[in-house]
Design a binder for these strands. Sequence first.
DNA 1: CTTCTAACA
DNA 2: TGTTAGCA
Length: 106
Amino acid sequence: MTDSGGGRVPAPRAGQALYAISVAAKLTGTGQQNIRLYETRGLITPLRTSGGTRQYSDSDIGVLLRIGELLDQGLNLAGVAKVLELEAANAKLHRALKRAQSRPRQ
DNA sequence: CTTCTAACA
DNA sequence: TGTTAGCA
């Protein structure tokens, strides 16, 4: 956890839909200033264009959506950050487990 | 589009 | 504390 997305997702493949903060705000129903604060708080780390414009991928939109749900459930930004952190770690473990299970042992 | 500051609930 | 508004 020494990185706030520093590991960085190497996966914005070609054809991946990217959204500006205005459309991301509309999609998630959250204000633009809010989304920027989430980034400051380490809840999300969108891609940045050369000019410094934030680019939100589909997965980022999903994260923003989940942030709204968690906040609605009574969590504060720190709690949401923790949940997202745990979810990321869980997904990583789940991936490793699934790979080990589907792998024929010899 | 970005950052910052200020104010409100 | 989180959200919103205005300015540069």
